[in-house]
């Protein structure tokens, strides 16, 4: 029944990775593991996009030796999207890590549940 998933192995792998990343982001209690989950989730989408843009037997759309025929190159738009996406996820990751550093300095733990309950006790 699921054999047709093997027709598009890259896309299938990407979705499985996305699922792993998403559940770690949601369920892990350790903040660093959550950030790793986020990284996996976003990279999985980039894998999906790259796989969608690739056409077997063609090369990256950089003109060398004067070959300008469209038939020779892969679709460049998904690669452009991946680049933009990477920029976004780098900035998000750095902000998350900065937040984690501040929380760790304050509460000396990385467990989000413990941190939440400590913060509740601390003040109102």
């Amino acid at each position: 029944m699921f054999l047709h998933l093997l027709d598009n192995p890259h896309e299938t792998a990407a979705i499985i990775l996305f699922g792993i990343g998403f559940t770690s982001l949601m369920l892990q209690r350790n903040l660093i593991k959550k950030i790793i989950g986020f990284g996996m989730m976003d990279s999985a989408i980039y894998l999906f996009l790259a796989a969608k843009g690739y056409i077997t037997g063609r090369t990256a759309p950089i003109v060398v030796d004067g070959v300008t025929s469209v038939e020779k190159y892969i679709n460049p738009i998904p690669s452009g999207l991946v680049l933009t996406g990477i920029v976004v996820s780098v900035s998000v990751t750095s902000l998350m890590l900065a937040l984690t550093v501040r929380l760790y300095r304050r509460y000396h733990t990385l467990d989000i549940d413990v941190i939440t309950s400590l913060a509740r006790k601390e003040e109102n």
Binding site: F22, L25, I45, M96, L99, L103, E123
Partner: peptide, 26 residues
């Protein structure tokens, strides 16, 4: 303390949201 914790939780939920949105867009 509470605002930093709130900001972290805000980011976690929002990252899940934007992950789903990006996947749908893809």
């Amino acid at each position: 303390g509470r605002t930093i914790v709130a900001a972290t939780r805000y980011m976690i939920w929002n990252l899940m949201g934007s992950g789903l949105f990006l996947l749908g867009l893809t």
